[in-house]
């Protein structure tokens, strides 16, 4: 009882969890576009979570007597060139992509935010050096940058994350820098400086939380790009090494048999596009709604 007495006041002091959740979701629920996007994304999230219950096959189980088949009762989406069930590969592939894409965006957020805060807050020489270096990197087309990085370090899940981190960080840094330069002039920053707070406290505790809105929307869009990037790398044979059920690699492998078995290309392509479209719609809807309130 003592415990509950201690907890109760803290809950009553603030709006309940569900109320806060409703407030947070309000802009989202108001946007039909965002809801459609959310539904698409949630579909794949649920598929990824419940993967083992959704298919009797392992994504790597080969069947030499059932290669390149179309949809049937035994294999709802058909099989690929090694007789592997396409549905089970899609299902397990969603696990990979839904871990790797957000993870790589988180990593590029960490790197980009740090650089952007430093450049924006200190300005001067630091700003010049950091931003010119990042500009130089942004001069490369993203795909070329992925190719260079993967070709240099080799293809693996970690390296895919590293490549997307490196390619994505400059854009985030640029965004964060401009937000920082704006917020830096506010009175509460001057107050914090007067209090004698350290620059890092000011950057991470005063500036960053106040810049979070655009960063979150940008990050949502970036997850979509990351899904696309991982798909592209897989298609170019630079993604996750086989036999990982990477969607892009599935398209790449299936492309060879497209004349006899178009299903092996169709399904993973649909999966990639539905997830990317879902993420983009979600981010767009979110942005529209947050803009409206501003």
């Amino acid at each position: 009882m003592a415990v509950s007495e201690k907890v109760m006041p803290s809950i009553s002091a603030r709006p309940s969890f569900w109320l806060r959740l409703r407030d947070a979701l309000a802009p989202l629920l108001a946007s039909k576009v965002a809801l459609v996007g959310l539904a698409l994304v949630l579909f794949w999230v649920l598929v990824a979570i419940f993967a083992p219950f959704l298919t009797p096959y392992s994504p790597r189980e080969q069947d030499a007597d059932a290669m390149n088949l179309g949809p049937s009762a035994g294999h709802p989406l058909g099989t690929d060139h090694l007789g592997r069930d396409l549905w089970s590969r899609l299902v397990y592939g969603s696990r990979l992509i839904l871990v790797l894409a957000p993870l790589s965006v988180l990593c590029s957020l960490a790197v980009g935010t740090t650089l952007g805060l430093l450049a924006g807050y200190f300005g001067g020489l630091i700003d010049e050096v950091v931003m010119r270096l990042l500009d130089a990197m942004m001069a490369f087309p993203a795909v070329l940058l992925y190719l260079i990085i993967i070709a240099a370090v080799g293809a693996s899940a970690t390296n895919v994350v590293i490549a997307i981190t490196i390619a994505g960080a400059p854009g985030i840094a640029r965004l964060v820098r401009s937000l920082t330069m704006d917020i830096r002039t506010r009175d509460y920053i001057a107050a914090a400086q007067l209090r004698g707070e350290s620059p890092f406290y000011i950057m991470w505790v005063e500036i960053l939380p106040n810049a979070r809105g655009p960063i979150i929307v940008d990050a949502m869009l970036r997850v979509g790009y990351a899904v696309f990037a991982i798909g592209t790398l897989g298609f170019l044979g630079l993604g996750l090494p086989p036999p990982a059920p990477d969607w892009g690699s599935m398209v790449c492998a299936g492309r060879r048999y497209i004349w006899s078995n178009p299903w092996a290309v169709l399904w993973p392509s649909l999966a990639i596009s539905s997830l990317v479209v879902g993420l983009n719609l979600f981010a767009d809807g979110l942005r529209e709604e947050t803009m409206r309130y501003q």
């Binding site: 044979g237 086989p242 036999p243």
Partner: peptide, 16 residues
């Protein structure tokens, strides 16, 4: 080499 489809298929079969 990921550009040689039959090599990749061979490698995947061998792995399993």
């Amino acid at each position: 080499c990921s550009d040689w489809a039959d090599v990749v298929a061979y490698a995947e079969i061998l792995k399993e």
